[in-house]
Design a binder for these strands. Structure first.
Lengths: 192, 192, 192, 192
DNA sequence: TATGAATGAGACTTCATTCAT
DNA sequence: AATGAATGAAGTCTCATTCAT
């Protein structure tokens, strides 16, 4: 449908520009140009720039959520499941640096003020794989009895740093590194 | 010296406004007002807005670096030194939320594009306590043999997340939490 | 005829929106929506927005002219005829506040620049009841020997003010008030 | 003072453009050009276009109020005082057609929604010459016992019509006409 | 005829920076 | 050195009108 086509052109043009230049270096006119549409066209699909920005966020969130669920097997031991999810998420980030840069900017801006950083990590509402996993781990004494939010910090803080360093070219993450980092994060949260 | 006084007024007015409102919601005129100087005066002390922003960053970096060195005793075991530094840094962040918010924004913006995130953590040039500590730990097999940058990620990624959550009011970090988090980070990097 | 139906839908949608919101707060797209037609359809029936606006004016003029002629009996004394017409017109205005608001806006805008205010009062061309009445009055020395346009002003100026005040809710015109106002206007123009 | 100079340039440029072209045909950029200032300069003196528009209104109101008070002698009979004020106001309007056109547009627009039409006529607050005059007349039985707002309508409705016709060139008001119109208005409101 | 997505000129407003004082 | 009024480029958004379907 043509409807969806233009909308998608706008979304990806905006994603790319904002990721690379930041919110205020990506004026609507530039987004329109890159998307190959008229300036006013954006306002047919999005109420205003904020709405566009939030919509991109929601789309990315959806994609990431479904990506990390792939190949997830609930029957494995908790450690293996944690490592699988952790590596899956980092790999997604590395393979989609624009998505990652966008998320990072979004969280550090008034645009993302209402939404929480941890939403991206799946904590939305009650159906969060990570949250479930942590709670199960606490119950079974596999994971330290800490507030969930601290477990998030211990698990994903390093990931975000690594992804940023990788994106900036400060490090070239290889499979070995990734496996080791995942294991280290597990060690940070596991019950000794 | 009067010179330094006005300069400092400008720096702290800008720090406060930018921390709370973000870069583009802190116009030069507003900074001038808050600093109690004329708009043109800022340009006597700083070439332009970018220069001002970068200067604030450098000042904060200096303050933080000296703050965490306080009470640091090179004679203690490596684990104790790591925990001491880690807690000291987190405490500084918590006690200076404006500094932290400023840093966060700076890193996620084109302004900070040239400077690296890890500079704040002391990696500037060659004189870094943390770097030294990690290298010593690797040599003595107390710390995993990973690239320094990964050890940074494992150590400070969680800290930034915790500080952000704390700043946002998502969690009220108590001493117990902080100690546990520091220990968890040590477990992430220590040699098994 | 379908032709006329859509045209009328457009006309009344535009009348309502413009009356309530003003010319520039009544975009063509909104008019189309309210009329239940596509935006482009308006341009089949009207050359452009100006043409639509002028057409509405002409339709209202027609309606008003025929409304005040109702029940008009040429056989009565001139004073009674004046009062009858005056009250009839005011009543029309009060019963059709949208029409009145539209007229008022039209006259005070570039749209109505070409057409004259007094057209609404029936002075179009040569067939005006009011004009005839005034001329008869002058001839028979019942009415002051003043330029017709001044007699219009003395007769209808108060009416417009009263209607505006009524529309704005500043006064709730009752029958007694209306009768008194009509009489006062007659006194303003009658020969002593 | 230079401050006041630019402000006045802006005010009179805006007055002229809006009077002649209407609110939406007088963009800020055009006003700035005509005033000989930069586009942004307007916003130093006025918060936004609305504020500018309202400020012009207030200035005109002040001028008119003081103009009609000139040569007013409270010691004369009420009829003479009424005629004096009425003629004074009409003359002001005729001599300042831009002011009049501005007022007319203002009253028929959302800009003037909050302020009432009759403010211009002096009904502001409690110190209104006209209001006082009417009330005195009612008390002394020189003027019909009607709501003040109706007396306003009967007195000033014709004036506005005459001024409009004069401005549009439909009539060339001469002194004789003006005197007669004033007298006619008096007859409309006076007790028989 | 009818549609409504698309357009792009143009409106209002902000703000980093300059410069006469 | 200090000021702050002035500037104008640039940003967001609206809307009359067109045209492919």
């Amino acid at each position: 449908m043509k409807h969806t086509e233009k909308r998608n052109e706008i979304l990806s043009a905006a994603l790319e520009l904002i990721s690379e230049q930041g919110f205020h270096k990506a004026p609507m006119s530039m987004i329109a140009d890159k998307a190959g549409v008229g300036a006013g066209t954006i306002y047919i699909y999005f109420e205003n720039k904020d709405a566009l920005i939030n919509e991109i966020y929601l789309e990315l969130e959806k994609k990431i959520t479904s990506a990390i669920q792939e190949g997830y097997s609930a029957s494995q031991p908790i450690k293996e499941r944690f490592i699988h999810l952790w590596i899956g998420l980092l790999q997604y980030i590395i393979e989609h640096p624009l998505h990652f840069r966008y998320m990072e900017q979004y969280h550090n801006s008034p645009y993302g003020a209402s939404l929480r950083r941890d939403r991206i990590l799946g904590k939305t509402g009650n159906k969060s794989i990570f949250k479930d996993l942590f709670e199960e781990g606490i119950t079974n004494h596999n994971v330290k009895d800490l507030p969930i939010i601290m477990l998030f910090a211990l698990s994903f803080g390093p990931m975000v740093f690594l992804a940023r360093d990788h994106t900036l070219g400060l490090i070239k993450l290889q499979d070995g590194h990734i496996t080791q980092a995942a294991a280290a994060c597990w060690e940070a949260i596991k019950n000794k």
